[in-house]
Design a protein around this nucleic acid. Structure first.
Ligand SMILES: [Mn+2]
Ligand SMILES: [Mn+2]
Ligand SMILES: [Mn+2]
Ligand SMILES: [Mn+2]
Lengths: 225, 225
DNA sequence: TTAATTTTTTAGGCAATACTAAATATTATA
DNA sequence: TATAATATTTAGTATTGCCTAAAAAATTAA
């Protein structure tokens, strides 16, 4: 049995080693990195590492970096799958806001019932991406891949479609909501300002200017992607 | 904040003091009764009673019986509401079996989100009774009332409809499923055997004999109830 | 390459939730 | 009413998961 707390450690390890934006191939994770991500003390994390190792969920030698075992990775991906399926359920079936879904999914992801997850998956029509555009691992732990690029890299005059966001903080999502930007929104790049790397865009005949930071965190694909 | 464990104690207290079959008016509950219901030792329960009292959820004087405070009762009913709404969701929206829903609802009832509960309630069309026929407290803690009687009390020749079961054990529910009996099943009482108080019944042209025990645990109403 | 800094581990505590065993209070019985 | 049986509480222990402070190892900088 993997406890709720252990599940959160596994999820954090999956994130830091594989899923965090910008990671190409798997990275090893340090105790302090994990501690700071979970907002816990290193000594606390260190104790948990022993338990996770005993349960064969991680590899860890004293003073060395942490890697997930096969079992740890499979279990971690299971939790990511549940989290993203629940987010999709809350968003599409219960009309929760983009901003609210994460918090509730943080609780729902720990419900232990294979059957429940599969039933929810079916109800949703086996989605590949969650409402933030993040890929939903399938029941075998395979993660759907999709080519996206940052809005910053789109050329002047081109049209693209928002596929995902690389920042899911409330502040960012709220700002996007104000701008009427969400998943599948079409954006035309009107102009690119060399000076501050901001972009002038058009959404449904409305024009806006987006800072470099915002453009960086909007992941887009071609119009027919 | 009420912990998951504390929630389970409150739910047990609501059950033992008010909801258990056969309770007319509220009863006080003893430590040992609560312990045996929760399958815990009395000493464990005794410690928890102190914490619940500190949080003003129960009234308890040393060596005396336990009663719920207003706050304890409201919080307990909230959990019962969540449990029964989730059971209804699993049964009607996800096609879970009658037998499986309770276990998963035991987990889901602890998810903390007012909004989620209200959204699920709306999705279900504000049901008054769960798939076992148990009343669902509304958001103000009011419990819908309905007149039912045991199948044992139905007179020979009369037709009635199953409204609820007073035993929700897997054994009983499985047996009912074999007999094709569920909520809203119509039953005609063909004969009542004085000797062992068993009843001969007809369900959709099929005849069965039900033992006294089974008949006692089937709660029915008039055909147009 | 030694010294300073940072990271990791160990040691000792604490709160929540469980247990067993023993002490104490209450209730039932003779 | 005295005693036996039962119920409740207290005392002491364990595990999980968190903390602070201090020791030890590894890394970085002088
Ligand atoms: Mn999320
Ligand atoms: Mn997401
Ligand atoms: Mn139930
Ligand atoms: Mn029920």
């Amino acid at each position: 049995m993997i406890s709720l707390t252990e599940e959160n450690y596994l999820k954090a390890l999956i994130y830091l080693s594989s899923l965090a934006p910008g990671i190409e191939k798997k990275r090893d994770v340090s105790t302090s990195e994990l501690a700071s991500y979970l907002k816990l003390k290193s000594s606390t994390v260190n104790e948990m590492l022993k338990r996770l190792k005993d349960k064969n969920l991680i590899n860890h030698e004293k003073y060395k970096k942490i890697t997930l075992t096969h079992s740890g990775e499979r279990n971690g991906l299971k939790i990511v799958r549940r989290h993203r399926l629940w987010e999709t359920f809350l968003f599409t079936k219960l009309d929760f806001d983009w901003i609210e879904i994460h918090e509730v999914a943080e609780q729902l992801e720990h419900i232990k019932s294979e059957k429940l997850v599969e039933k929810i998956d079916r109800l949703l029509g086996y989605p590949s991406f969650d409402p933030h555009g993040d890929p939903i691992p399938n029941k075998h732990g395979n993660i759907p891949q999709r080519i996206t690029k940052s809005l910053s890299t789109v050329k002047k005059g081109e049209t693209c479609m928002v596929l995902a966001v690389s920042d899911t903080s409330k502040d960012f999502l709220n700002y996007l909501e104000d701008l009427d930007i969400s998943i599948r929104t079409e954006i035309v790049v009107i102009d690119k300002i060399a000076y501050d790397k901001s972009v002038k865009i058009k959404i449904k005949h409305e024009q806006y200017s987006l800072s470099r930071e915002v453009a960086d965190n909007l992941l887009v694909g071609g119009k027919f992607n």
